[in-house]
C-alpha cells in the first residue's frame, strides 16, 4: 500500500530505508504571508531524513527566488540567501514553471539559484511522479 496511497504511510513499521519522492510546491510571494518561510523550514528539516526532495516554484512562488531582495526597511528577515544553502543540504532539484516566469516578465537570469525551468506539461509530469506533494 505504500506506493498506492500517496500519503505518508504510518502503518509500515519497516519503512526505514525506504526513500520516497517528496515535492514541496511553492506558490506564494515571500513576505506578504508566512507560507514561503514555513515551506523553506520544512524543506531544511526534510533534508535530515535522506529522502528524495524537490522544490517546485509556480505562480508568485517564483518571487521567492528573485535576485536583489533587501528587507531591512520592512524589518523582516531576508531569507532569500537560504535558498543558496540548499545545495549544501543535498537538495538540488529546483523546478520553476516557465509560464509563471513569463507571466511576471522574469527569466532564469533573474533567479538567485540554479534551477531547471520547465513547461506546465513537464511540471505536471514531475508532480505525478511524486510519492508525496506538499503545497505551500
Amino acid at each position: 500500500m505504500t506506493e498506492s496511497t500517496g500519503g505518508i504511510d504510518f502503518e509500515d513499521e519497516d519503512a526505514s530505508g525506504v526513500i520516497k519522492k517528496f515535492m514541496f510546491v511553492n506558490r506564494k510571494a515571500p513576505y506578504g504571508t508566512i507560507y514561503a518561510l514555513e515551506s523553506l523550514e520544512v524543506v531544511l528539516i526534510s533534508a535530515a531524513f535522506d529522502q528524495d526532495v524537490s522544490l517546485a516554484f509556480l505562480d508568485d512562488g517564483v518571487y521567492q527566488i528573485v535576485k536583489g531582495q533587501h528587507t531591512k526597511a520592512i524589518a523582516m528577515k531576508n531569507f532569500s540567501p537560504t535558498y543558496r544553502a540548499l545545495e549544501g543540504y543535498d537538495i538540488e532539484k529546483l523546478y520553476v514553471e516557465k509560464e509563471s516566469l513569463d507571466q511576471r516578465g522574469l527569466t532564469e537570469d533573474d533567479l538567485l539559484v540554479d534551477v531547471q525551468v520547465m513547461s506546465s506539461a513537464e511540471m505536471a509530469k514531475m508532480m505525478s511522479e511524486q510519492d508525496v506533494v506538499i503545497s505551500f
Binding site: L44, A47, A48, K77, N78, F79, P81, T82, R84, A85, G88, Y89
Partner: peptide
C-alpha cells in the same frame, strides 16, 4: 552571513 541560517550538523561537517 552567507545563508542566513545556522547549518545542520551534517552540513556543517561537510562544509
Amino acid at each position: 552571513n552567507d545563508y542566513q541560517i545556522a547549518p545542520a550538523i551534517r552540513v556543517l561537517t561537510k562544509a
